[in-house]
Design a binder for these strands. Structure first.
Lengths: 107, 107
DNA sequence: AGCAATATATCGGACGCGAAGATATGCTCG
DNA sequence: CGAGCATATCTTCGCGTCCGATATATTGCT
């Protein structure tokens, strides 16, 4: 398999599951998804979107101009959804493993 | 809070929950914990142990010589256990969030 | 008029990981 | 008995992702 996704990348993909979003909108959505814990920075965001586009996990969607400002939308590709599912499952296993170990805490 | 732990680091801490282990032993234990999915490399392992020691998440334990070879043991510190618990909880939230989104998949 | 918010983008540095290799010892099997 | 493999630690170098900072442009709000 591939490398684990880092936290910002994981949350970007998660945010795009429901519907296409534009970059700046993702900042607010990731903030919401993470309950204020993850504040996406521009450098991280746009770098990640370029990379994910190159890797085929997201794709450029429509463009809109609202209030004279360009919004560039991105959507999750099937490959991106698959990657997110795989990553979620990987994390789920690790959480399970660690939780079990931390419960049986006697040594 | 602090930065997320990367996968190898997370598994090293998890492996040390039960009892102190030496570096080379951790390679086998992480392999087992991850069901063969994560093969810890020497560069990653010893780099991580030095870093985690500096950060106070693990500490040097006893040293043994077995068959003429030195074994340098490390143990999880209270701070290390706390960091592992926090990280596990963080991942658990992300897994939950992503799982919910992926389930309600209609768009 | 001026400042915050919206929206995109780029650049440099930090940091963890992986690949590769160096070094040393002892066990095993042909 | 000798060669190779497993055990055990450690270092160096490059890469990828993220962050901090900065740049630029437009509109809304006070």
């Amino acid at each position: 398999m591939s490398d684990p996704l880092r936290e910002p990348t994981f949350l970007i993909l998660t945010a795009l599951v429901d519907e296409p979003m534009h970059g700046y909108g993702l900042i607010a959505e990731v903030d919401r998804l993470s309950e204020g814990r993850v504040a996406l920075r521009p450098g991280t965001l746009y770098g990640a979107l370029d990379r994910l586009t190159d890797d085929g996990l997201v794709a450029r969607d429509r463009e809109e101009v609202v209030d004279g400002r360009l919004r560039r939308y991105y959507r999750l590709t099937p490959g991106g959804e698959g990657a997110l599912r795989a990553e979620t499952e990987r994390m789920r296993r690790h959480v399970e493993t660690a939780t079990l170990r931390l419960q049986g805490r006697t040594a």
